[in-house]
Write a protein that binds this DNA or RNA. Sequence first.
DNA 1: TCAACGATGTATCAGCTCGATACATCGAGC
DNA 2: GCTCGATGTATCGAGCTGATACATCGTTGA
Lengths: 206, 206
Amino acid sequence: MARRNDVLTLAVLGLLHDSPMHGYELRKRLAAMLGSFRAFSYGSLYPCLRGLEARGWLSQSDSEAAPPHALAGRRARIVYQLTAEGKERFGLLLGESGPAAWEDENFDVRFAFFARLDADTRLRILEGRRSRLTERLDGVRESFARTRERLDDYTSELQRHGLESVERDIRWLDDLIEHERRIDHERRGAPRATGTTGGPTGSPSN
Amino acid sequence: MARRNDVLTLAVLGLLHDSPMHGYELRKRLAAMLGSFRAFSYGSLYPCLRGLEARGWLSQSDSEAAPPHALAGRRARIVYQLTAEGKERFGLLLGESGPAAWEDENFDVRFAFFARLDADTRLRILEGRRSRLTERLDGVRESFARTRERLDDYTSELQRHGLESVERDIRWLDDLIEHERRIDHERRGAPRATGTTGGPTGSPSN
DNA sequence: TCAACGATGTATCAGCTCGATACATCGAGC
DNA sequence: GCTCGATGTATCGAGCTGATACATCGTTGA
């Protein structure tokens, strides 16, 4: 597992959950959402779509839904839509716990669909990610400490910067976790003193 | 170009520049240096070594240099050393300008060998990296701005965090560039007021 | 004493991904 | 009407990864 394709699968199912789409459009949406931090090539996308269709999670929507005459001359496009089974699988995949690698690789795509998960699952995923990141940080830190003396200034500066990035990611997760806990607490129990606990927007860690 | 292998090539040549080594040791050093941020598999390393040998940049050192009796029972190992041509190629590759992709992909490995470059080349590489990162940042920012309205809080938070990471990298580069300029200035001209310009250590951006 | 185990060490392979490219149509500009 | 860039589907070679195989060495502990 944890194949690159699995991430793509998750993203494709999530996007098609909203509305039917064809490959080119999907790729554009993916790029807009994850913003060239993570690109998916056609060489992955089209085979992935066919594979998902073969598994019965997608189907080609021949209806096209739009007025036929308006798009009559349009180039042939293959519009995919989610089947009932596909919707179910998406829900499972999104909330699923898996091997650490799976969860790490998938984190940002999952996070992009976070709003569809219930509060408990969100918290579980965030905390899992945090503990794995911490673990990795400790390992790298130890490895660096063991070899520090024989490194020149540039190399150790590179390492320092790398470690700092991971630390920052962990702090980001801390903010998110705290935010989740706060809104969960507000929703569950009666708010103690109104007006001070939460900010006006839903955006955590301004 | 900009193949993953090119980065490996650079790293291998750089490490062998110091002392002859065999594959396993090389991999350990690589991991210690770049710290599991970037891992190289044996499936890449061994073919890479053979390729470099075929090109005449490496040769197998059968001398083994160490007292033969002490390591007599040792498992067969293939120790590689840099040839004269290999040394030359490494110098060229390290300082070389190339397509943006090449420079980006190679940045951290190049940086790890930064101390061997002259001040001008260091500055050129840092500034190139900075301008490419800025360019990318602008593109992503614009792409995000165009789709902001239809994103939920989680997705936009993810994007914000991603942008912030890139901004932080740019600031890191700024610190490095400033540091380079300062030591260059100190070396070249007479230091104006002693004791305040540079820190005691060579490490930039504490 | 020696069996078990983990580190050392070289090597290969299936499966997968990427970047480039091909091919075709459409709308817009000039 | 001609060219150019965007839209759209599709494929392929090059090459990387993770897993695995195989073999030896040092250490640990019963």
